[in-house]
């Protein structure tokens, strides 16, 4: 029993690390632009299919092909913000949400048209590799790498945001865009580039999450909704909170799946989210 519990919690931590990767980049784009991008998860799908295409064409390992996919996603993020989101940023929330839902339809079905709807696996040299801790804890190496990647990303975000001039400017734009402009910060430029980086990070997340997971064009929504829950539970602009909330979702999902039985167990994180939103709308870790 305890062995199962430990294995489950560890598995949940690893899955949560994957969610955290996506949630942190979602947090970055949300905080700099004030826009919740419902197509965020679809960019992850896009990154994964690009990795698949590069694997098929040139036999590039997904880890290696990020060198190509990162710039591609960065550019598409920049284009998304500059051409579609910036013009509507001041209109009603409903409109902005609709627009990003429109982008979701375009991406999901664009991918469907190009790659077809069958779930596919991207073969990777790492796929089957296991790490064995002690005598009973089995960990899939790619998941451990993804978890480590999420920690590294969190660390990197913290260093950049809290300890560099660029980060200071991004925080200024987030806290008071008008004052930031009066300080000589080129606000549209900061927003566009940061949004691009946020989408670009999806390339890295995609590479880290791909080994051993089948991908399909319609998966993106799930990769928007769960990170979005982490974002809200974490308190929107508190990156540590977002990270912890993503981990918490991973762990509760794993516990639910193992101990509550199958699909009903997957409800646990959603129920947790609704509870948190009702009881602690300011976020789990922030003082009211």
């Amino acid at each position: 029993m305890t062995e199962l519990l430990i294995q489950t919690v560890v598995q949940g931590l690893l899955v949560g690390g994957g969610y955290a990767l996506v949630a942190l980049s979602l947090g970055l784009t949300y905080n700099v632009s004030g826009i919740i991008n419902f197509a965020h998860g679809d960019f992850l799908t896009l990154a994964m299919y690009l990795a698949l295409a590069l694997q098929t064409a040139w036999a590039l390992d997904p880890y290696v092909s990020t060198v190509i996919t990162f710039p591609l996603l960065f550019v598409s993020g920049v284009a998304l913000y500059w051409f579609l989101l910036r013009p509507v940023a001041r209109s009603q929330l409903l409109m902005v949400i609709q627009l990003t839902l429109g982008v979701t339809f375009v991406l999901q079905n664009g991918i469907l048209m190009v790659f077809g709807g069958q779930p596919v696996r991207v073969p990777s040299d790492w796929e089957a590799s296991l790490l064995i801790l002690g005598d009973s804890l089995f960990l899939r190496t790619p998941q451990v790498l993804a978890f480590a990647g999420s920690l590294l990303l969190a660390l990197l975000l913290w260093i950049v945001l809290d300890h560099t001039e660029t980060g200071r400017r991004i925080r200024a734009v987030h806290q008071n865009p008008r004052a930031a402009a009066l300080m000589g910060i080129d606000v549209p430029r900061v927003r566009t580039l940061t949004f691009g980086v946020g989408i670009g990070i999806q390339a890295i997340a995609g590479a880290l999450l791909i080994p051993g997971t089948p991908i399909e064009p319609g998966q993106g929504f799930r990769y928007t909704v769960i990170p979005l829950m982490a974002l809200v539970m974490g308190g929107l602009s508190d990156f540590r909170g977002i990270y912890l909330a993503a981990i918490l979702i991973g762990v509760t999902e794993a516990l639910g799946t193992v101990f509550v039985s199958g699909t009903s167990g997957m409800i646990v994180p959603y129920a947790l989210f609704v509870l948190v939103l009702l009881l602690r709308p300011q976020g789990l870790f922030r003082r009211a």
């Binding site: 001039e165 200071r168 400017r169 925080r171 200024a172 806290q175 008071n176 008008r178 004052a179 930031a180 009066l182 300080m183 000589g184 910060i185």
Partner: peptide, 25 residues
């Protein structure tokens, strides 16, 4: 350089960070 009405400081940043941002160009 303008000092805007209502001061418009960056509330969740330190005084030092606020000052440094003034000289970010």
């Amino acid at each position: 350089v303008q000092v805007p009405e209502g001061r418009q400081v960056f509330p969740r940043m330190s005084v030092l960070d606020n000052l440094l941002l003034g000289g970010t160009t």
